[in-house]
């Protein structure tokens, strides 16, 4: 098991190195000259002084060969120093630290809630396929998939903030501020988790080891808890880690609507402003966190299902 975890860690390091190269290069490939963008924002409308352009280019280190820029960037990134934002001149690691914390919290709460709700819903549907509970759950989850976030979010604000006054409509201060954005984000993953749980449980409940467990005298609830659920949640765990990676930097719409200072907003604005240090560090940290979550999931998966620990004779 330890060897399995170590192997996964090695894969993680290789993945991060590859990603660092790609994220470093991507902003350069996207076109546009960051130096001119920055200067234009300062002198609004006037012609640019060519010597000022070159001076700033030198200051930002953008006149160096790309490979040197990369090595320099990587060396400092390894110490957590991602340089200064081109536009606001604040250290990138500070901007990133707070945004990453916000996004991680929001994603973890939304997906955690979706996971916890999906297991009983999917199991309920799987117990009697095609019967009333199954139809109801399927209908519910399919409508969740169809609801767009930019429609749901204002509705939730209207109901829970405007009419009922229970929850704040926007911002990020106390845990109450988390509820509406997390709810908005959770709905679609909840639908997918439920469907995958249902499909997995339908298969698991037909497995000989379920009948064998009943034959040993376990009641149906005991069998579900002790044997069916553990096997049924394995595919949902995989889906969980995929969604985690996606939502970390991909919840721009929800972040904008609820004024959540997360990664989606930060990176989106950086792209618009050609703020290369933020883009590079942002993407790298999103990917790093995503790969880390995937690795943790893989290790958990192997802990639950020992048959996964391939090439590893010892338990």
């Amino acid at each position: 098991m330890v060897r399995f975890a170590l192997r996964r860690l090695l894969v993680l390091v290789v993945a991060l190195f590859t990603v660092s190269v790609v994220t470093f290069l991507v902003p350069y490939a996207s076109g546009g000259d960051p130096v001119r963008t920055i200067l234009r924002s300062r002198v609004a409308g006037q012609a640019l002084d060519p010597s000022a352009v070159e001076a700033l280019r030198h200051d930002l280190g953008l006149d160096q060969p790309l490979i040197l820029q990369y090595l320099d960037w990587l060396g400092r990134a390894l110490h957590g120093d991602f340089g200064l934002s081109f536009t606001s001149r604040t250290p990138v690691d500070q901007l990133l630290g707070s945004a990453l914390g916000v996004s991680f919290t929001l994603t973890a709460v939304a997906l955690g809630a979706a996971f916890v709700a999906a297991l009983p819903l999917g199991t309920l549907a799987a117990l009697r396929p095609g019967k009333r509970a199954d139809t109801a759950v399927t209908f519910l989850t399919q409508s969740f998939v169809a609801v767009p976030e930019y429609w749901l979010a204002p509705i939730l604000v209207l109901v829970f903030s405007q009419h009922l006054g229970w929850l704040p409509s926007a911002g990020w201060r106390t845990p109450q501020y988390l509820v509406l954005p997390a709810l908005t984000l959770a709905l679609r993953p909840l639908a997918y988790f439920t469907q995958v749980t249902r499909a997995a449980m339908v298969d698991v409940l037909k497995a000989p080891y379920i009948t064998a467990a009943r034959a040993r005298g376990l009641s149906q609830p005991q069998t579900l808890l002790r044997h069916a659920l553990r096997n049924g949640l394995l595919p949902v765990m995989t889906l969980f880690s995929l969604w985690f990676a996606g939502l970390l930097g991909g919840s721009v719409v929800v972040e904008v609507i609820f004024a959540v200072p997360g990664m989606g907003q930060l990176v989106y604005r950086a792209v618009v402003n050609h703020d290369i240090p933020i883009i590079q560090a942002g993407i790298l940290s999103i990917v790093a966190l995503a790969v880390l979550v995937t690795t943790v999931t893989d290790v958990l998966y192997a802990l639950i299902n020992p048959a996964v620990r391939l090439h590893d004779g010892s338990v």
Binding site: P208, Y209, T211, A212, R226, H227, N231, I304, N305
Partner: peptide, 12 residues
């Protein structure tokens, strides 16, 4: 049962 290995829970 007929399939002894499949009659044991793989995760237990």
């Amino acid at each position: 049962f007929q399939q002894p290995k499949a009659s044991l829970d793989p995760t237990a």
